[in-house]
């Protein structure tokens, strides 16, 4: 489904630091239906990657859609993706437009 978003882009964040280092707001049943990045912490993996930006809306995490997921569930999906030892990276499908 994400591939049909004309303005979406896939960003790979390598787990290069002990934290991911992003803050997100939004989720299903809120004013911001998909999680949006509101902060990127210096020194975190996301900051080191250099491609994730404040304002990016996260559509998918490692191919899992966040559409329809409430805030805590979306946050859990991202946290699990960072925690798992199976991959040394997380693939975020993001868009700059709401």
């Amino acid at each position: 489904p994400g591939l049909l978003e004309p303005t979406s882009c896939l960003i790979r964040v390598v787990k290069s630091a002990p934290t991911l280092g992003i803050a997100i707001e939004g989720g299903a049943n809120t004013r911001q239906p998909l999680p949006r990045i509101v902060t990127i912490q210096r020194g975190g993996s996301a900051h080191n990657c250099g491609k994730l930006k404040v304002g990016h809306v996260i559509l998918e995490v490692n191919g899992t859609t966040l559409r329809g997921k409430e805030h805590r569930e979306a946050a859990r999906v991202i946290a699990e993706a960072f925690k798992t030892k199976e991959k040394d990276h997380i693939d975020f499908l993001v868009t700059e437009f709401n």
């Binding site: 934290t19 991911l20 280092g21 992003i22 803050a23 997100i24 707001e25 939004g26 989720g27 049943n29 809120t30 004013r31 911001q32 509101v38 902060t39 912490q41 805030h71 805590r72 946050a75 991202i78 946290a79 960072f82």
Partner: peptide, 15 residues
Amino acid sequence: REKRLTLPPSEITLL
């Protein structure tokens, strides 16, 4: 659109 306005703001989570 009116429905949107009634939706609550989201909490923020640091990950």
